[in-house]
Computed example of a mutant assay.
Amino acid sequence: MKHIVFAHRKLSFGGGERVLLEQVAALADLPVQVSVIFRKEPGKRDIEPELRARNPKVVEVLHLPGPLGAFRWLRRIRPDLLVLCNHKGVQRALPWLARTGLRLPTVVTLHEHYERHLRKYRGIRGFVDRWLCTYDFTAAVREHLGPAPCSIIHPLYPRAEAQPVDPEARRAARRALRVPENAAVVGYAGQMDARKATTDVIRFASHLRGLLGHPLHLLLAGREDGSYAQEIQDALEDENLTGHCTRTGPLGDLSPAFAALDLYVMTSRNEGFFPLALIEALERGVPVLAPTVGGIGTVLKDGEGGFLIPKPDDRKPIDGALLRRTAARIAPLLADSAIWEAQRTRAHAFGTTLTRDYDAASRFREAVAAWL
């Protein structure tokens, strides 16, 4: 039986980890054994139960952070294929293995087109047989990493059919979260940290509040990174939004938070293809506002249930003047109930269509078929 090894950064919840899950699950019906090794956060194995449940042929899930341990383990296992994503220990081990005569068939999953992301793999580009890109940035791969073939596999996976949130469900969600029922509710649901730049959500909400003709409430739902929580608090105080904001902290289920929103706001400094949170908002009929980072601008159509912030880079926060202009654009639309209801309808239609009939699992199997 063939043995496939997935080498990943971590196993806590995240967009990249969702891709890992679906790649492993895509092999469940094939006669291959699977091992998963990871390098960070050994105490956080959030997705391990689902990995094992969705592919019973997972034989090992191992925390293996360093290059020496990875070298010894891979030399002993000698897998038929290595599927790599940001495991620095394995990346450093590959040239050592080659010097001993062991050349492992290797494919690498790439989530972002930014040069700083791609250059992580320059040291191993001569050992990579195929690049798996989550959206089409083939030209950037060619420029920075060389001529190995690319497969474009969007991380869009089948989802249960979602119904748009009706007014009563919206009010019920707001009551459950202790959010004002009659205010315009904007905000964010998910992990909050410096990369997600949640303080920019707060600044946008402040600009929007000054332009609307009726009350606005900010909802921030989810886990706040410990080193970032004070920045969130400082921004709320600076913008005089402390009394107009609900911070839920970690939630076992973010569905009520999405249901409570009139507008989902994402201000990330960088992203991969298309964050799952955007899909979760859209399919519930919640319009989204997001920057043109990663693959978002290649998919989201401005004014069709979603709105784009033209962010030109992946390192700096969104410019304050751009946040103000965006708020000025959104305010009259949000204030008009008929216009916003039409945006809700478009958001639901787009969100549910996006994942329909896209078979990412089949595309992954095709990309690695030569080694199965």
Rank of each mutant, 00 (worst) to 15 (best):
V5R: 01
H8C: 09
S12K: 08
R18H: 04
E22S: 10
E22C: 03
Q23R: 13
L27W: 03
D29A: 15
Q33P: 01
Q33V: 03
P42Q: 05
K44F: 09
D46M: 00
L51S: 06
R52Y: 00
V59S: 14
V59E: 15
E60Q: 12
E60N: 11
V61P: 05
P65A: 03
G66P: 01
G69K: 03
R78T: 10
D80R: 09
L82N: 04
V83H: 06
N86M: 12
G89M: 08
P95F: 02
A98Y: 02
G101M: 12
L102F: 06
L104C: 04
H111W: 11
H111A: 11
E112W: 03
G123S: 12
R125I: 06
T134G: 02
A139F: 07
A140W: 06
A140V: 06
R142G: 09
E143A: 13
L145C: 08
P147E: 06
P149I: 02
I153Y: 08
I153Q: 12
A160H: 11
A162I: 06
V165T: 15
R170M: 14
R170G: 05
R171E: 15
R171H: 12
A172E: 15
R174I: 13
R175T: 14
L177Q: 13
L177M: 14
V179M: 13
P180C: 14
M192N: 01
R195C: 00
F204V: 09
L216S: 02
H217A: 13
L220Q: 00
G226V: 01
A229W: 01
Q230G: 08
I232A: 06
A235C: 15
E239M: 13
N240V: 09
N240D: 15
L241K: 07
T242R: 15
G243A: 10
C245Q: 05
T248D: 10
G249W: 05
G252N: 13
D253I: 00
D253F: 02
P256R: 07
F258S: 00
D262A: 11
V265Q: 02
S268V: 02
E271R: 06
G272N: 11
P275Q: 11
P275D: 12
L276I: 12
L276P: 01
T292K: 11
G294L: 07
I296G: 01
I296K: 01
G297F: 04
T298I: 03
V299I: 15
P312Y: 13
D313N: 15
I318G: 09
T326H: 09
A327N: 09
R329P: 08
A331Q: 07
P332G: 09
L334T: 05
E341H: 14
Q343K: 03
R344Y: 03
A349W: 07
F350M: 12
T355F: 03
Y358V: 04
R363H: 14
V368H: 05
A369L: 05
A370R: 12
